[in-house]
Nucleic acid binder design. Sequence first.
DNA 1: GCAAAAGTGTTCGAGGTACACCCATGC
DNA 2: GCATGGGTGTACCTCGAACACTTTTGC
Lengths: 226, 226
Amino acid sequence: MTIHQTIKVAVDAVVFGYRNQALHLLLIQRKLEPYQGGWALPGGFVLDNESLEAAVHRELSEETNVTINYLEQLYTFGQPNRDPRFRTVAVAYYALVKPEAFAIAASTDADDVRWFDVRDLPDLAFDHAEIIQHALQRLRGKLRYEPVGFGLLSEKFLFSDFEKLYATILDKPIDRRNFRKKVLSFGLLTELNEKRSDGKGRPANLFQFNEDQYFKMKERGFYFEL
Amino acid sequence: MTIHQTIKVAVDAVVFGYRNQALHLLLIQRKLEPYQGGWALPGGFVLDNESLEAAVHRELSEETNVTINYLEQLYTFGQPNRDPRFRTVAVAYYALVKPEAFAIAASTDADDVRWFDVRDLPDLAFDHAEIIQHALQRLRGKLRYEPVGFGLLSEKFLFSDFEKLYATILDKPIDRRNFRKKVLSFGLLTELNEKRSDGKGRPANLFQFNEDQYFKMKERGFYFEL
DNA sequence: GCAAAAGTGTTCGAGGTACACCCATGC
DNA sequence: GCATGGGTGTACCTCGAACACTTTTGC
């Protein structure tokens, strides 16, 4: 059996960040054809000896300089005509970035790198608009039954940050009292003896997510759901 | 930018069927090296001009002759050493087959094809055991919030078939009265004026899943959950 | 003292869970 | 008439949803 195949394998990353009460994602401006000068997801071809995850990390550091906090495979896009040059199968990932890591810089393979509000995206190269739609759907779904939201917040955060994050991403109002009652009842948050004020209003207590505790509880059959 | 890459792209399918109150899956016996004579998931390399889904369908008809009722992408496996010959990235799918289509035959690329009870699988080639674990987890998850279970049953089925399917796949006992109350309350099942008897016990009514109705309700925001 | 955000409890209703007995058929 | 699976109703309790006032700070 002879195998003659000219398909190339690429990875693309949908990198989410949360700031100013809005969900953002990271796009690069392409230096090269095709779609030169157009906006696209960071990504590129997988090297012969690296794993898919390693390729995502390498491409993100070549094109941007973000530090990612969470990475998960999303879906594989393989329509024969999705790349005008040759057949490319793209394994898409999505990633979450904490606000501390928001500083970015264009690197070798990109002309520019920017955070875009997900509600206001530019035209996108390839089928990247479709990939982003999948990623958004997945993020919204995941938020409800796994505590991934903390991956978008700082180590220490206000309870209201967490609440607003949910309200923003799920795009629906949340009752503060019910939400707080439920979230705290999980026992996954440590309330710190530190307060932070935004300059206006009553200062609020800081919280921290207890990841170890979550893994322990998960093993015992605990099921996170919001 | 020159792209020199020798990765090959394959698809593999985890094909589930349900019979004798047990979940089965379809394996082929490999005709060729590597793992010649070993059991493996049906699958193979993607042709340059076919979509990934088309490749799955083609391979399934080359190696088996099952009729697929539901097909969904599962996950992409791309560890550099997963294929001893050369670097292969496998896009795995899982599929559901109705009992009518249980008849199978080895075809050109396989020595033998068989249904195996998922609780009693042979040693498997490549990383296929791992792929199957992912597929089982996904199936169990999906069963709870989408009505995919009907894809494993005949067009017309006994209510108890449906209940046993859930009890089997989720591996937990189900209260008949509560389950029936809930499922029927969705209004997705049509009760037929036909009865079927297994030879013993009281004959039971046949039901049919109303897929059109499901799509309509889903658009209006209905959320299936069991 | 007023504007702004933080913090907190109770009531109500829907839905999940537990649970046991009669029915129709084949042998 | 007995064995086998099919079909049904009720009581309780948990949890989600709705809802408003007080507190702490900055100015």
